[in-house]
Amino acid sequence: MLATVLTISNSSLQKLLFAAIKVALVVLVIWLAAFSMDLTKRPHRTTHTLRVLLWHYPFGKRFNLSWDVCLDLYNIRHCALTDDRSLFNQSHVVVFHHREIQSRVSALPWERRPSGQMWVWMSLESPSGNKRVKELNGLFNWTLSYRRDADISVPYGELVSGSGAPQPRPKTGLATWVVSNKKTTQLRSLVYASLRNHLRVDVFGKSNHRPLCPDCLLPTISNYSFYLAFENSVHQDYITEKLWRNSLMAGAVPVVLGPPRSNYEEFLPPDSFIHVDDFHSTRELADYLKEVAGNESRYQRYFEWRKMATVKLYADWRERLCTICAKYERLPKTKVYHDLEAWLHSSVFYMWLMMIHKTTRCQGRCNSTWW
């Protein structure tokens, strides 16, 4: 009797075991199927080295791409930069700097472009400085620009957490401006022409036949209380090295002319700069600068940000190119700019507002009191 019971029990156990194995196999198959479907929905993972081909060196100025610069300089892995056009078909990304292609659009290799290769339009110029963009419609997948709405956004500079920035040195001058290409019709030239009637501004640069060597730039500016960080055109997010390097890194309070104050405040503390729009005339601006320069405690308040932050300057084109690899997985792989010109000029709205605002505010008094 006992042997019979054991036989039955063993038989039942075997059946239960086989049933459990079948259930486990079914669950495993279902899980694998679900996991496989989920993988198709996930962003493409970069497990191999991305090759980024730079078609032209910006402004014809070459830089070293012969070693693993992305890893060695910026700790970005699996990113190979090259200027070797023979690797065009093997390149995952090709970057075109606008200045070199704007007059040679027909020479772009679009007819032999491999399927899946991503093209990047790159420019750090404002919309006013980019010509013949309409001819590029439908060619590019991503944009690389200072603008925050670019696919690869790399500003001219930013404030990052940290402290220890040296305190500004004692000042021997009131205000200075370094400018190489000054056109009399530019807004910044008009404002300066009016401001100098009320305030001494020492002007350096090629336009004034007083060029400064690269190592002389910051030490010279640091002797002044204020620096005219005047942009050559007014566009959203167009805040260049004139502010980040020439002013903040030199230890001079920036007097800015560019996009509205609200746009600057998206990058900087509101009490770290002086905006020309805060004043009704250049005389009023000049009087304020003199007043602040004469009050040391009030002047030093413009440097409070140095206790919590330091300036990070983006001056290396290689860092911008390496950023493509860092952001590659999150970038849309099917995107195409069918109207690149419309995207580029969407910030012209800001320039329009500035001109209308100033013209309305001046009401015929601009020649004598503003610009």
Rank of each mutant, 00 (worst) to 15 (best):
H209F: 05
R245I: 14
E231D: 07
S207M: 07
L228G: 03
L218C: 09
M249Y: 00
N232F: 02
C213H: 11
S247P: 07
Q236L: 12
D215I: 00
I221N: 10
L257W: 01
A252G: 11
C216D: 07
L212Y: 07
P214S: 11
I239C: 06
L257K: 07
V253W: 01
L248R: 08
R245S: 15
W244D: 14
S222M: 14
G258L: 03
S207P: 03
C213L: 14
G258Q: 02
L228Q: 02
L212H: 00
R210A: 02
N246I: 10
Y238G: 04
A250T: 03
H209T: 06
G251K: 06
G258H: 04
Y227M: 10
I239F: 04
K242Q: 00
P219C: 09
P219G: 09
H235F: 06
G258S: 04
M249F: 00
A250L: 06
N232L: 03
E241A: 13
D237C: 09
P254D: 12
Y238P: 01
P219A: 10
V256G: 04
L257Y: 04
I239G: 06
V256E: 05
Y224W: 12
G251D: 10
L243C: 10
I239L: 07
S247V: 09
I239R: 05
S233P: 03
S207V: 02
P254R: 10
T240G: 04
